[in-house]
Amino acid sequence: MMDTRVGIFAGEDPFVIARRWLAEAEGREISDPNAMALATVDPDGMPDVRVVLLKEIEPAGFVFYTNLESAKARQLDSGGNAAFVIHWKTLRRQIRVRGPVERVGDAMADAYFRSRPRESRVGAWASPQSRPIASRGALEAEVARLDAELGADPPRPPFWGGFRIRPLEMEFWADGAHRLHDRYKWSRPALDADFDVIRLGP
């Protein structure tokens, strides 16, 4: 029997569905509706996961930003693939994504960095992300030093930028009564191929 996607699952473009779900979450989640758990693998094959903020859903990818010398960035650059999940408790929905990763261009990273509050830009310069620091006081002292040095419009540090995940797989999940959840998986064999859509068991 043909399974017709309706309601919150309606549509032929999974990126459009993802943007629609995120827009709904932005009106209901208490904080950080764009928070996603990003999974990577280190060179020894050990998995790693942390929460980052999704900043844009493009027509063909999901974009976030970070310190390019951080553990996550090193793992993204060396592994070339990543996965993430966004779970919205208020909506009782989640999206899972897997696929290759690429860095965004300098112009795009510059534009986003300029949109951040000045304090966050100074903090990006000051933080040796994922690496040991002597103390909270030492970090705050570095922030104070750079605050005086960088001026009114701090530029993007050369070690800070963005990544784009281009999905080979996207799964949309919605909570169902008696744990009979609704799940649809969009998958394609290559980035230039069309997605196939199947319903998955709960």
Score class of each variant (00 low, 15 high):
Ala25Leu: 00
Glu26Lys: 14
Glu26Asn: 15
Gly27Val: 02
Gly27Glu: 12
Gly27Trp: 10
Gly27Ile: 00
Arg28Met: 13
Glu29Leu: 02
Glu29Ile: 09
Glu29Val: 07
Ile30Trp: 01
Ile30Phe: 08
Ile30Pro: 03
Asp32Gly: 13
Asp32Met: 08
Asn34Trp: 02
Ala35Cys: 13
Ala35Pro: 07
Met36Ser: 02
Met36Cys: 13
Met36Ile: 15
Met36Lys: 05
Ala37Leu: 14
Leu38Asp: 01
Leu38Gln: 06
Ala39His: 02
Ala39Glu: 01
Ala39Lys: 03
Thr40Trp: 04
Thr40Glu: 02
Val41Gly: 00
Val41Ser: 06
Asp42Met: 07
Asp42His: 10
Asp42Ala: 07
Asp44Leu: 12
Gly45His: 10
Gly45Lys: 14
Met46Asn: 12
Met46Gln: 12
Met46Cys: 09
Pro47Tyr: 08
Asp48Gln: 14
Asp48Thr: 09
Val49Pro: 00
Val49Trp: 01
Val49Ala: 15
Val49Leu: 13
Arg50His: 15
Arg50Ser: 10
Arg50Gln: 13
Arg50Cys: 11
Arg50Asn: 11
Arg50Phe: 06
Val51Gln: 03
Val52Phe: 10
Val52Pro: 01
Leu53Val: 13
Leu53Trp: 06
Leu53Pro: 01
Leu53Lys: 06
Leu53Met: 15
Leu54Trp: 05
Leu54Asp: 05
Lys55Glu: 10
Lys55Tyr: 03
Glu58Arg: 15
Glu58Met: 10
Pro59Gly: 11
Pro59Asp: 11
Ala60His: 13
Gly61Thr: 00
Gly61Leu: 09
Phe62Tyr: 15
Phe62Arg: 02
Val63Asn: 03
Val63Tyr: 02
Phe64Cys: 13
Phe64Glu: 00
Phe64Arg: 06
Tyr65Glu: 01
Tyr65Gly: 03
Tyr65Ser: 07
Thr66Leu: 07
Thr66Ile: 05
Asn67Ile: 11
Asn67Tyr: 08
Asn67Arg: 05
Leu68Val: 04
Glu69Asp: 15
Glu69Leu: 14
Glu69Pro: 04
Lys72Tyr: 06
Lys72Leu: 10
Ala73Cys: 11
Gln75Ile: 09
Gln75Gly: 09
Gln75Asn: 14
Leu76Ala: 07
Leu76Asp: 01
Leu76Tyr: 04
Asp77Ile: 14
Asp77Phe: 00
Ser78Lys: 12
Gly79Leu: 09
Gly80Val: 03
Gly80Asn: 11
Gly80Thr: 08
Asn81Leu: 08
Asn81Thr: 14
Ala82Ser: 09
Ala82Trp: 02
Ala82Asn: 02
Ala83Gly: 15
Ala83Phe: 00
Ala83Val: 02
Phe84Tyr: 11
Phe84Ala: 02
Phe84Glu: 04
Phe84Thr: 01
Val85Ala: 10
Val85His: 03
Ile86Arg: 07
His87Gly: 04
His87Ser: 07
Trp88Ile: 03
Trp88His: 04
Lys89Asn: 14
Thr90Ala: 13
Thr90Trp: 03
Leu91Val: 08
Leu91His: 01
Leu91Thr: 07
Leu91Met: 12
Leu91Trp: 02
Arg92Ile: 04
Arg93Lys: 13
Arg93Ile: 01
Gln94Gly: 11
Gln94Pro: 00
Arg96Ser: 05
Arg96Phe: 01
Val97His: 05
Arg98Gln: 11
Arg98Thr: 03
Arg98Ser: 08
Arg98Met: 01
Pro100Lys: 06
Val101Lys: 00
Val101Met: 04
Val101His: 01
Glu102Ile: 11
Gly105Cys: 07
Ala107Asn: 06
Ala107Gln: 12
Met108Phe: 09
Met108Asp: 06
Ala109Val: 06
Ala109Trp: 08
